[in-house]
Simulated scan of single mutants.
Amino acid sequence: MSIPVVFIDGDQGTTGLQIHQRLQGRDDLQLVTLPAASRKDPERRAAAINACDIALLCLPDDAARAAVASISNPAVRVIDASSAHRTDPDWVYGFAQMSERHDEVIAHASRVSNPGCYPTGAVGLLRPLIDAGLVSRDYPISISAVSGYSGKGRAGVDEFEGPDAAQATPFQVYGLGLAHKHVPEIQQYSGLSERPVFVPSYGSFRQGIVLTIPLQLRLLAPGVTGARLHACLERHYAGSEFVEVVGMDEAKAMTGLDPRQLNDTDRLRLMVFENAGHVLLAAVFDNLGKGAAGAAVQNLNLMIAGA
């Protein structure tokens, strides 16, 4: 089999740079990017994308749609890291551990939409529990998450690391219109029938995410406990290379969660806390790792293996 040609369109943003760094030096693929002078040339970009085997799009939503529209070669496969196609039924959602054998679906897909950073944690926690019937599809879910400022992209890095960094707000809750673009994605792939409330925020650290979802046991089916929720997650992710479910005893001993604890890894750590009829589901991961570039590279590896 010939070595696949992988084209990164948009390798100068936070996600694109991370993907580029991860793929450099690999001898099982031929990595292609455009020189700076050609990055905004529609003809050069179209030629590059139609000459590759797999295109990795690290672009704003409208630019990603335009890039896909420029594809005339039916053999070209695409991984889109933007949110342009995440709820499109013609695209495969790129969270390999979402359900049984979903990695095989990704391996043979021609169009894969990389998950958003926040949805990675929310879907990772909720989908197994909803599929198992332990959390009802119409449960009034509320999600709170804090991300490192790199989640804003280059603008966030400039804000906190540029010449005016001293004036950067150390912590900011945003999405107060309760219409964050990740909400439809979370709802669709978690299996919820109702829109969740999602409250995101940025902190004054470069990367990392803590995402939490509170549940009240009195609103769940009779007999559902924190231990049952934990056991369900543990079964679902048993043997997973990238997803770890922390033991209940270990979680009980924790006094805090550092969003940076999995930085520079591609892992997702899930936890269940329980007390006095309340349960807190929690996820920790790197927004640039499992939440972006790491997931894209995992999907790329699956697609290369499935070719």
Rank of each mutant, 00 (worst) to 15 (best):
V197M: 12
P140K: 09
D80G: 07
K152C: 01
H182G: 12
G247I: 03
D88S: 13
F198N: 07
G25H: 05
Q261E: 15
L257A: 06
G203R: 05
I186F: 05
H230V: 05
T225I: 02
E244D: 15
E274Q: 03
D41L: 04
Q97V: 10
G177N: 14
R228M: 14
Y174Q: 06
E159C: 05
S150I: 03
L219S: 15
A51V: 08
E244R: 15
F273Q: 07
G175H: 06
D61C: 08
L57P: 02
L270M: 04
L178M: 14
I209F: 11
L126R: 05
E100W: 07
L270H: 02
R127Y: 02
D286M: 03
C58A: 15
D88R: 06
A75N: 14
L126K: 05
G247W: 02
L268D: 09
W91V: 06
V272P: 01
R86P: 00
D62Q: 14
R228C: 08
C117H: 10
L29N: 13
D158W: 00
A47P: 00
N263V: 07
A132K: 03
S204M: 14
E194D: 12
I8H: 04
T120V: 08
Q97H: 14
P4Q: 12
F242H: 14
I209L: 14
L125Q: 04
W91F: 09
K181F: 06
D103P: 03
A67H: 10
P74G: 13
L257P: 00
L31T: 03
